Amino acid sequence: MTDHFFTPAEYDAISDTAAHWCMRMHASDCTAKERQAFEQWLDAHPLHVSEYEAMLEIWDVAGNLQRPEKAPVPIVRLRPASWRRFGVAAAVCALALPLAAYSGWSLGWLPDSYQRLETTDKGRQVTLNDGSQVELNLRTELIYSHYKDRRQVTLEKGEAFFSIAHDSGHPFVVRAAEGKIRGTGSRFNVWLYEDQVKVNLIEGSALVSSNSEQPGDGLRLGPSMQASYGHGDFIPRIRQTDEHDHSLAWRSGKLVIDDLALNEALPLINRYLKKPLMVADNSTGAIHIGGVYNINELDSLVATLPKVLPVYVTRNNDGNPVLNAIPQKPAKN
Rank of each mutant, 00 (worst) to 15 (best):
D112P: 02
D112G: 01
S113F: 03
R116F: 05
E118F: 08
T119P: 01
G123M: 14
G123E: 13
R124M: 12
R124S: 07
Q125S: 13
T127K: 06
N129M: 14
G131T: 05
S132T: 13
Q133S: 13
E135G: 05
E135D: 12
R139K: 14
T140V: 03
T140Q: 03
E141S: 15
Y144N: 06
S145C: 06
H146Q: 09
D149C: 01
R150I: 01
Q152Y: 03
Q152N: 10
Q152G: 03
V153S: 08
L155N: 02
E156L: 15
G158Y: 04
E159G: 05
A160E: 00
A160P: 01
F162L: 08
S163I: 08
S163M: 08
I164S: 03
A165N: 10
H170E: 08
H170I: 07
F172R: 13
F172L: 11
V174C: 04
R175Q: 12
R175T: 12
A176T: 07
A176Q: 07
E178L: 08
I181K: 14
R182K: 13
G183T: 13
G183V: 13
G185E: 10
G185Q: 12
S186V: 04
S186F: 05
F188M: 06
N189R: 04
N189G: 07
N189H: 06
V190N: 07
V190M: 09
W191D: 06
Y193P: 00
E194L: 12
D195Q: 15
Q196M: 09
Q196D: 11
V197C: 08
K198W: 02
V199E: 09
N200F: 00
I202S: 15
I202M: 12
I202F: 09
I202T: 14
E203H: 11
E203S: 13
G204E: 01
S205A: 11
L207W: 15
V208C: 04
S209F: 09
N211S: 07
N211C: 09
N211E: 08
N211A: 05
E213M: 06
Q214G: 00
Q214E: 02
P215R: 02
G216Y: 15
D217M: 02
G218D: 06
R220W: 06
R220P: 01
L221E: 06
L221H: 04
G222L: 07
G222I: 02
P223H: 05
P223L: 00
P223K: 04
P223T: 04
M225H: 12
M225E: 15
Q226H: 07
S228Q: 15
Y229V: 07
Y229S: 07
Y229I: 03
G230N: 02
G230V: 02
H231T: 12
G232E: 09
D233F: 00
I235Q: 15
R237H: 14
I238C: 09
R239H: 14
R239W: 13
R239S: 14
